[in-house]
């Protein structure tokens, strides 16, 4: 697991330019019942040709960029010491539980697996 523990800034600079990020600041119909479910389509019903032209390119080993699995949080006042006023965040609020994720930090991790107000979410950047 040493790889997962490796601080992100030790990723060679060469690779840093290679990983792309696209914001997935996303949303959809806001169900009142926030129990999140995604539909699983059985594999045998999928036309694989749909994905044939999506060429997958390998640039780094798996988990070379470590996702965050057990995120820790600060209160807003505590966070003011570390967050710039103009720093971009991705914000969510579910069932009274409200959280912000620093976009610059997300650039080092790409994914945060979290649970907010009972909703299990993947914050992706």
């Amino acid at each position: 697991m040493t790889k997962r523990q490796k601080p992100p800034f030790t990723i060679p600079a060469f690779w840093v330019g290679l990983i792309l990020l696209l914001a997935a600041c996303t949303s959809q119909s806001l169900p009142e019942n926030k129990t999140a479910t995604s539909q699983h389509i059985p594999a045998n019903t999928v036309n694989p040709e749909k994905y044939a032209d999506l060429r997958i390119v390998t640039l780094l080993p798996r988990d070379a960029i470590p996702a965050i699995d057990n995120p820790r949080f600060l209160t807003a006042d505590e966070a003011d010491e570390f967050y710039d006023p103009d720093e971009l965040v991705i914000g969510v609020t579910f069932n009274g539980d409200t959280r912000a994720y620093s976009v610059p930090l997300l650039s080092n991790h790409e994914i945060v697996n979290d649970e907010v107000g009972g909703v299990k979410i993947a914050v992706t950047w």
Partner: peptide, 22 residues
């Protein structure tokens, strides 16, 4: 799921009780 991308200061103004990723 719905989310917003915006500046920290304006997010905090809208949601003073927000937590922020350490």
């Amino acid at each position: 799921l719905p989310s917003w991308m915006m500046t920290w200061s304006e997010w905090k103004e809208k949601y003073p009780d927000t937590l922020a990723l350490d």
